[in-house]
């Protein structure tokens, strides 16, 4: 299975994702420069965290209109899967590949800490190795991670089971105190209607080896790996 890790000017988690896919997951991976439009030969495209284009105007706004992200729509429509973490999630929302938007943390602080995520939808290529209700431990590192969506969008997200992860306590309770950024309904990660694009604020690549303090993030990449079937398509569950 071939992974592509997109690099924008200002991306900072590209090397981490590349390392995890190559050295921990043992899968072929290459960097994809933001000006490229050719995503052929790839099965999974990763948009890593960072501050693409300095996050000027709005976080992910400029990157969301870049050539590689314009190509991502066709890539996904043709059977590929895409994963955006942190700034990658912001970019996916800005590009319209995912609904809603991410804005300034309610606390106004940059939050760099460990969070617990309760898994709500295990029928996506990114979560099929997980149990419903399973709690994952992963770090966050962001100043603009408050997920915002209007009532109509929120209803649609629920109807199509697009809310994948919510911030929770270590035992899986979704509480206000467990919400690090003020996200609506503690939303930490969502998928598109088809389940083939995942965006989440936490950093799975920073929880992928015991030496990092945990390996829960690796479960997401392992799920993707386990979802690719022989005909080149992805299992939804």
């Amino acid at each position: 299975m071939k992974f592509g890790v997109v690099v924008f000017p200002g991306t900072w988690s590209d090397c981490d994702f590349h390392y995890v896919v190559s050295e921990v997951l043992h899968q072929p991976v290459k960097y994809v420069w933001h000006r490229e439009r050719d995503l052929s030969g790839l099965d999974c495209v990763i948009l890593p965290g960072g501050f693409s284009y300095g996050d000027y105007l709005r976080a992910g706004a400029v990157a969301g209109r870049s050539p590689v992200v314009e190509a991502l729509g066709d890539f996904v429509a043709n059977g590929g899967v895409a994963l955006g973490s942190c700034n990658g999630f912001q970019i996916l929302c800005e590009s319209g590949l995912l609904p809603g938007a991410l804005m300034r943390n309610e606390c106004l602080q940059y939050r760099c800490e460990t969070t617990h995520l309760v898994t709500e939808n295990v029928e996506t290529p990114f979560t099929r190795l997980l149990r419903p209700g399973q709690v994952l431990t992963m770090p966050i590192s962001h100043g603009e991670g408050k997920y915002q969506a209007d009532a109509e969008t929120l209803a649609r997200l629920k109807k199509h089971h697009q809310i994948v992860f919510r911030y929770a306590t270590a035992d899986g309770q979704v509480t206000r105190a467990a919400n690090p950024n003020g996200s609506i309904e503690n939303i930490a990660g969502i998928v598109n209607e088809e389940g083939t694009v995942l965006g989440l604020m936490p950093h799975p690549e920073r929880a992928s080896e015991t030496a990092m303090g945990g390996t829960d993030g690796l479960l997401i990449l392992q799920s993707v790996l386990g979802s690719l079937v022989e005909d080149g398509g992805f299992l939804k569950r």
């Binding site: 105007l57 709005r58 400029v62 800005e94 809603g100 938007a101 804005m103 915002q148 969008t153």
Partner: peptide, 9 residues
């Protein structure tokens, strides 16, 4: 519409 404003926010 294309860039300067995010109509969601």
């Amino acid at each position: 519409r294309k860039l300067l404003v995010n109509p969601i926010l």
